[in-house]
Amino acid sequence: MSRPAASPPHDEAPFVSATGVSRRFAPSLPLGDRIVAALGGTMERRTVHAVDGIDLALRKGEALGLVGESGCGKTTLGRMLAGILPPSDGRIAIAGQAVMTGGAHPRKTTTRVQMVFQDPFASLDPRMRIGDTLMEGPVHHRLVSRANALSYVRNWLEQVGLDPDYAGRYPHQFSGGQRQRVAIARALAMQPDVLVCDEPVASLDVSIQAQILNLFLKLRRELDLTLLFISHDLSVVRHLCDRVAIMYLGRIVEEGPAADVYADPRHPYTQALLDSVPKLVLEDGAQVHFKPIRGELPSPLAPPPGCHFHGRCPIAEDRCRVERPALRPVAPGRAAACHFARIDGAPPA
């Protein structure tokens, strides 16, 4: 990257930081209710707390996996970090610089963070040649002159493993895996320091998924990218990411180095999630017992009080029903939000 690094490589200060970030969605009221409200009546607004007071930090060059089930708020958090959705509360910054302006009409203030979306069929304009899609942003932001744009784009296509001559093609001429490569090239052509990837391999077949994961590994090595990788797939995250953060109903319940969290989860939800994942069974006649989490995800419209997980937790006690557990350190570099999380060095309870 041509841009100088904002912090020295060994600096432990976070490169990307989210501080006290929340995001609420209040659906607009139907007309009748709006009239009642205007006349001074009280209307109950069904507000979704998609993201509820999250602190998150990424060091430069780090890959953080954000894991959770549908509705846990991982996409909302990712969009806020990418600067395309303003937070309701809190601040998001890259190297100390806010990614969005405040005020009534927030705008993205930086091109240093870019996003790769899940569905490469929806995220590329079907009527633009991919070369034009790729050069639009960089030309506008003067990362490259119009005269050099084509060779610039061809270079990025090559970087993601596509034939540079494809620049003249339209999205429909590509397979799903190739389109995701185009979407990655589009993000990289903006020369970002941070890439937010929202389920970038979820819609791909396993053999194609493996090719794209290999591409991410290569790009991480070559470009010193800081990566936020959102996925519901624990094995994909373990493969690609240094650290992992587990989300449940708008909150982070556990985070730490991926290998440690997988080997020794401290939050009962992390444990349950790991137990739920089907494993490849290679023994003849093996009896497979899943240990499914009982119950279902509560509605984010009315999350349970205290610890959101208490209704499904095998070790919940009265305290969990009233008191929200803080995300607190449990081991070097690790944190968990559970009243009963085992803490290294603490005497057993």
């Binding site: 396993v206 493996a210 090719q211 994961l213 590994l217 373990r238 493969h239 290998a259 490849l280």
Partner: peptide, 24 residues
């Protein structure tokens, strides 16, 4: 075998997956 080797769960974290080249 290609399908099995494409699974990240069967590989060492951070190593290149032995994916199947090309497309169907």
């Amino acid at each position: 075998r290609g399908l099995l080797e494409s699974l990240p769960a069967t590989a060492t974290a951070g190593t290149e997956l032995r994916s199947i080249p090309g497309t169907t």
